[in-house]
Design a binder for these strands. Structure first.
Lengths: 148, 148
DNA sequence: TATTGTTATACTCTATAACTATA
DNA sequence: TATAGTTATAGAGTATAACAATA
């Protein structure tokens, strides 16, 4: 069975099938362009969460990442050892700590995004204008679907 | 910095940025709809490869999945124990074996795809016709990008 | 006494090295 | 002698249980 896709799909079910495959494949292709930085998936994900949400306690970060606190102890320790995050004392509760991304950590994420977007931008420059117009309109709809 | 996205992007770089985020988010959302079947990522991936490519030797399968042969020995053993794949003797070389997906394994994958496509089809039914038209056209272009 | 975070320990997944069977 | 696959063993990553510090 092949998912090749040369004609626009005609029904909602067919559209769902072809869209699912196309989105999954492009997402996989984009991941391949990741900076080959020596960080595990968990480390990269935790770093991204700190970048988006700002400083969090280890417990909050563990909840966000859906891992148990001891796992996050380890992950934060590794990121801290590489200077990508820093701990500061919690202002009111001395049991807790606040973990924040450092400028080195933020720079690493920025570079990683830049690389993948650069790859995609190069591919876009190879497309005819009518296909770009389709993608410009689709970006808005796909974004809405992803938030559903 | 926010990636919210209410207006169509105007430049190629901006389109690359918003498209990357939208595609990654929708792919993540679709993964959440996976059947909660008790298979590891490696097991599911190997099963999918056998489904797409037909019977393979353990060595070929390991190469496809970019893991070392001993890891695939383990993965195939687990899938075999659950009746999702079966080994048959290689027709000409008694050192090798051929691993094939069983009907139970193929059914499991079919059900998993069905669930995710059903979720997406439901979301599509909530969209106005002009947005569906955009997605129908976009599915073709996204598919092409993913193959780049 | 309850909560936050860490340390101790076990399990899963993957890897490299050593081994067995067949070519 | 070379190749396909497995078994033995070790290194990450995550989990649960037990512990220390603070509220």
């Amino acid at each position: 069975m092949s998912y090749a896709n040369d004609m626009p799909p005609s029904t909602d079910t067919a559209l769902a099938a072809s869209l699912r495959v196309a989105v999954a494949r492009l997402a996989r292709r984009l991941r391949r362009e990741r900076t080959d930085v020596d960080l595990s998936v968990s480390q990269l994900s935790a770093l991204g969460t700190l970048d988006r949400h700002g400083p969090l306690t280890p417990g909050e970060l563990a909840a966000h990442e859906k891992v148990q606190p001891p796992s996050m102890t380890r992950t934060v320790g590794q990121l801290e050892a590489r200077g990508l995050v820093a701990r500061t004392p919690h202002p009111t509760d001395r049991r807790q700590a606040l973990v924040a991304i450092t400028s080195a950590g933020a720079g690493l994420l920025r570079e990683d995004r830049r690389r993948r977007e650069e790859w995609l931008a190069r591919r876009l420059r190879e497309l005819p204008e009518d296909e770009l117009a389709v993608l410009r309109a689709a970006a808005v709809v796909l974004d809405k679907l992803g938030r559903a």
